[in-house]
Amino acid sequence: MTQILIQGFLLSGLYALIAVGFTLIFSVGRVLNLAYGAYLVIGGYAYFWLSQTLGMPKIVGVLLAIVLGAVIGISKYRLIVKPLKGDHVAVEISTLILAVVVQAGIVLLFGDASKILHPIVSGVSRVGGATVTYNILTAAVVSWVILIGLYLFVRFTHLGRALEAVSMDVKGAAISGVDPDQMNQLTWAISGALGALAGVFFASYTQLYPGMWVTPLIIAVAVVIVGGIGSILGTLLVAHIIGFMEVISTSLIAAELRGVFTMLLIIVVLIIRPKGLFGRAEL
C-alpha cells in the first residue's frame, strides 16, 4: 500500500509536468499541438548527447535541453502555427507530421535502438518499505514546484494575467493593450521548455527511443480531456488520478494494462462530461 501511494505520487508529478505544457498551448492558443511529444524526444536526446556523449555537467545538459525546447516551440509557432492563421485542422495535421519528421530525424542522428539515460540525480532510498529513486523524486518535486510557480505567475503577475486574458477572450485582451501574438509566442516557448524538461525526466524514468513521443502525448491528451481544457489545478489533480490509476492497475492487476485505463477514462469522460471534470476554458 505504501509502495502504491509513494509511486502514485511520484509518477503523478511527472505526468503533471508532461501535461502542463500541452494544456497551456490548448488554453491560450486553442491549438491541439500533436507534436507536443516531440519536445520530450528532443529534450531527452539533447540531454543524452550533451551530458552522456559530450560529457557536459548534467545540470548544463538539462538547461540547454530546456533552452532548445523553448527555441523549437517559438520556431514552431512562427513557422507553422501563425502562418496557418487559426486553421485548427491544418495545424493539427502539420504538428502530427512534424512529430513523425522529428522521429525520423532522431533515427537518422542517433539510430533506432533504445538508450539508457543515467539518472539525473543518482541514489535510492527505502521509505516505509517502498523503493524511491532520487531521480523520480526529483522529477516529482521539480514538477510540483513548476506547477505551483506557473499558477502563481498566472494569478499574480501582469504577464500571467495577460496570458490568462488571451485564453479567455482574444479581442478583450487586445483592447486591454495585450498583444495576443506575443502571448502566443511566449506560451509556445514555455510549453517547449516544459516539454523538453519533462522529456529528460521521462526518458530517465523509462527509456530513450525515437518513438517515445506517443505515450507522453496520450498522457497529455488524457489530462487535458479529463481535467478540462486549460485548468492548471485541473491538470495537477487529473495527473494524480491518472498516475494512481496506472500504478494501481499495473501493481495489482497486470503490468500489461499500463495505459489501458487511461484511454478508457478518456472515452468515459468524453461521453459523460465532455467539458472535463474541471472544465472551463481558461488557465
Binding site: 486574458a165 477572450d169 478583450g172 481558461e282
Partner: peptide, 8 residues
C-alpha cells in the same frame, strides 16, 4: 459585447 474575461 464587453469582451470581459468571464472567469476572472
Amino acid at each position: 459585447r464587453a469582451n470581459l474575461f468571464a472567469h476572472m
